[in-house]
């Protein structure tokens, strides 16, 4: 396969994470059960995306 699937997964979640996080900070979304979940979950998504991108890069480095 000329495309390691971790690239698109990592990229999508990094982009989603950043957008949702930024919206949580600037967009003043309605709190859910008292939490600004966009900020929290945006960070989680971004972190997962970063891990995937890192794994994909490591795989390239190993080759």
């Amino acid at each position: 396969m000329n495309l390691d699937i971790r690239w698109p997964i990592g990229l999508l979640f990094a982009v989603f994470g950043m957008l949702i996080f930024t919206y949580g900070v600037l967009g003043d979304p309605q709190p859910s059960v008292g939490l600004n979940v966009d900020v929290i979950w945006g960070a989680v998504l971004g972190a997962f995306g970063a891990v995937m991108l890192r794994l994909a890069r490591n795989a390239v480095a190993r080759q």
């Binding site: 989603f16 957008l19 949702i20 919206y23 949580g24 967009g27 979304p29 309605q30 709190p31 859910s32 059960v33 979940v37 966009d38 979950w41 945006g42 998504l45």
Partner: peptide, 10 residues
């Protein structure tokens, strides 16, 4: 109910 805009899109 639980998802604000942003998370809702997800």
């Amino acid at each position: 109910h639980y998802f604000p805009n942003g998370l809702l899109g997800l």
